[in-house]
Design a protein around this nucleic acid. Structure first.
Lengths: 191, 191
DNA sequence: ACCTGAACACCGTTCAAGT
DNA sequence: ACCTGAACACCGTTCAAGT
């Protein structure tokens, strides 16, 4: 006899959580409300996710994944970094409280592949365009930092009101990102 | 007859909150625990502060104030921005969960002095060194964003473990900040 | 394997009441 | 003016028990 299909899985949790955050903001995302939205009791969630922090971490990963997928420029590493920065900003903006979420939550814990492998996979697109691994990681960290910081900054209500009459956020983001990427100096390629 | 002196004031709340955060982290900072630390009942806090968000906002302001006070370079605007970036990073690092706090909390609400006045006071040190107001605000926003983002990034536990074996955080921060500041282009000075 | 019911130890905030 | 006591409407998480 057909045993009942499970109502939940991790992917469903994540997408419902994004909906919830869209409607009520990050502070309105509670495990209990999420459960209600999914037609289930709160403890049921803990079968699919260790705790709330893990859920948030999975959401963060999803946001970064979108940015990586959207950054496709294949011409040179500076163009890729500009592309990636813009895509990341769009990914933050594409989800309510996205920057706050990413700034406060952790990444998902490692399933611990070895160090070199991780580094290579993170830096892969830049290495393919001619950068050394160390430069690739460093530059990418800078672009992520700048973009995450900018998005947090911009999403801060009072701060926004403070500045938006005398600062064009889009223009200044572009200017800052361009300055950053232009300022990177590439070491001599090792033969 | 001597009426009893008040036990609390806003400054005391703030410094106790910093202590609390130092011991238990940002997630361990609750109004109730803060009250206990101050030898008082929780509702008493609400006489001195509107709500928890306002308290956090005041803490954020304090952190930025420290950075401004520490950035003293008077030689030229690029040197000032480098100085300020380093001081801000130190200010974030000087308080447990400092970056998370600043990324997620708002600034204190405006006591609404007019727009031009605010902009001038924010940008003052840079204007004194020869920048136009618009450039000053834009460059400063970029440096703050980069530094805030970097500090969030760096304070993220799993992310840190992810990268610290192949990335020198201090060096890469310096490199990124230098790239950013070097990359800024100054418009023609209006006569 | 997957979910419910009940419970534990907390939260932020309000509000009448005390002094 | 400044604080207490009691209460309201929530939290995240655990755990035995159901199916």
């Amino acid at each position: 006899m057909a045993r009942p299909k499970p109502m939940l899985d991790t992917a469903r949790l994540i997408s419902a959580a994004f909906q919830q955050i869209e409607e009520d903001g990050l502070d309105g995302l509670s495990m209990r409300r999420l459960a209600t939205r999914l037609g289930v009791q709160a403890p049921a969630l803990y079968w699919h996710v260790g705790d709330k922090a893990e859920l948030l971490a999975l959401m963060v990963r999803e946001i970064y994944r979108r940015a990586y997928d959207a950054a496709l420029s294949q011409s040179d590493w500076r163009a890729w970094l500009l592309d990636f920065g813009r895509a990341l900003r769009a990914a933050f903006a594409g989800c309510r409280d996205g920057a706050r979420l990413c700034a406060s939550a952790s990444l998902p814990k490692n399933r611990e592949p070895d160090v070199a492998a991780r580094a290579n996979s993170i830096a892969a697109p830049l290495i393919a365009l001619g950068l050394e691994q160390k430069e690739a990681l460093s530059f990418q960290a800078s672009v992520i930092s700048f973009t995450l910081g900018w998005a947090s900054f911009e999403a801060n209500g009072p701060m926004h009101d403070y500045l938006d009459e005398m600062l064009n956020f889009d223009e200044s983001f572009e200017a800052g990102l361009a300055a950053l990427v232009k300022g990177f100096t590439q070491g001599p390629p090792s033969p």
